[in-house]
Amino acid sequence: MAQPPTNPDAAAASQEQISAEIAEQHRNYQQQKDHGTEETSARLNFPPYRSSLLRHPTKSLQHADPEDIELHSPAFGQRDVSPLEADLTIQHGGEPIGERIVVSGRVLDGDGRPVRHQLVEVWQANAAGRYIHKRDQHPAPIDPNFTGVGRTLTGPEGEYSFTTIKPAPYPWKNHINAWRPAHIHFSLFGTDFTQRIVTQMYFPGDPLFSLDPIYQAITDPQARQRLVATYDHGVSQHEWNTGYRWDIILSGSNRTWSEEDQ
């Protein structure tokens, strides 16, 4: 089980081997957690995710105090993003194939303040699990009516909403018969640039969760759960779409906030 992995792109391991490696990492984490440190994010070094082997820093991250530039983020406005970009189903001449969904939520900072008028970007596979990307060559159909890229600006309460098609799982080359759980990629900014995050939203009850070394690189079960959207019948609309709700909590702001900024 503790075989040192070799070539990160060899796809040599079986799912059983990968699952055993994940279980070992999680056991180690549980022991560590009992002695103090609770992890809230994904590990940069997670050997079952083979591509991380040569792409994680091995030296400690250096503590820095944020200076002016780190306490600000770029501003985005109407000139940057058209409201139509939040609907991924209207970018072509026809309707894309698949289950139409709306994903709604709020972007909050680590103290619960709404992150207002800030950029949210998404990208995803289509209903067959295929990306419009030259690197994705697996034999599933491209949908001529679906690109899978959207953008929006959050509203005054940090709210966002995308209309899209539910993506399907897709295969990848981490190991033999590796499949990613269905997900939507999200890219977010906060008020401080240090809150910048790229992540993935998943759908409730996906049977691939336990098998996926990217999702399981988040060692803490409660932290993993934070990436899973909730089915919300209030977001579903009669004869039109099903609905999911997913709130995103950024890391803490290091600004000094005045009363009126709150």
Partner: peptide, 20 residues
């Protein structure tokens, strides 16, 4: 009170047609 943050996930291999 501080809220627990949403974890990160890799940008993956397919961002090239979306983010740049």
């Amino acid at each position: 009170m501080a809220l627990p943050p949403t974890p990160a996930q890799t940008v993956g291999p397919f961002f090239g047609y979306a983010l740049p």
